[in-house]
Amino acid sequence: MLTSKKFNRFATIFLAILVCLTVFPILLIVMASITDENTLLREGYSLFPSKFSAGAYYYIIQQGAMIFRAYGVTIFTTLIGTVISLMLTTMLAYPMSRKSFKYSNALSFFVFFTMLFNGGIVPSYIIWTRLFHIKNTIFALILPNYLVSAVNVILVKNYYSNNVPDALIEAAQIDGAKEMQIFWKIMFPLAKPVVATIALFTGLSYWNDWTNGLYYIDDAKLYSVQLLLMKIMNNVDMLKSNISLGGAGEALAQVPGTSVRMAIAVIGVLPIMVIYPFIQKYLIKGVVVGAVKG
């Protein structure tokens, strides 16, 4: 017989093991980023390297004097993008979930279809740059790709259909509430757990995005953190594979290799590691509040 208490203990132990397995490679990355480049090559990756060096971080800061600005750009786009995305997503999902809505099925298909087919970067690029002129503006980091994701819409739609009884809406209608009011006053607040989830998903996709920047941003002032880091990394790769081109050999010898990549990973993820517990408090509250009490 498995009692609650035992199960709780089992959960703790099992997850603790899983966490250790998960965290080990991440620790390797962190240690590698502060290991001396030569030591890394000579002795391999280790949790306890014999010689430390901050060279990789120094290199990145020197390369991107604008790294702090880039953090600003990333934080701004992540916040604005996520908020707009939450609006659009829940607004699109709510009618889909209403059984009385004639086009709910058609709309589901319309949304789902976008998950399957995409026309590639060229037409998207033409539309966003020639019709909407977003090139080299902050909008380029917000508008393309991430505002409405089919997965998120469907998650919210399912949440509504499974968790919100029709009676609730009917009651509101009888009280004379307009659809818009029903959505804002009742449906949006009700979606808290799932909104928290998709906020996290969307926020992370904005945080991690560098493709929008790569295509639509030339102006270094609008580089996001990930784009900046990606550019540094891509350049190292490109130099490596074109060693016979121009001054590539010379350029390459000036960059520390492996440890820089590791430092790049740390710089990209670190702020999330720091901020996450705070966000989690608010975001996952919705999720965990309703959760099973042991």
Binding site: E37, N38, L41, R42, V236, L239, K240, I243, S244, G249, L252, A253, P256, G257, T258
Partner: peptide, 21 residues
């Protein structure tokens, strides 16, 4: 390998390499 030739050579662990120049 993921290391570039200049990384490897600089480490002092390697004797030499081929190249065209």
């Amino acid at each position: 390998t993921t290391s570039s030739v200049s990384e490897l050579m600089t480490s002092g662990n390697y004797f030499g390499h081929f190249t065209e120049n």
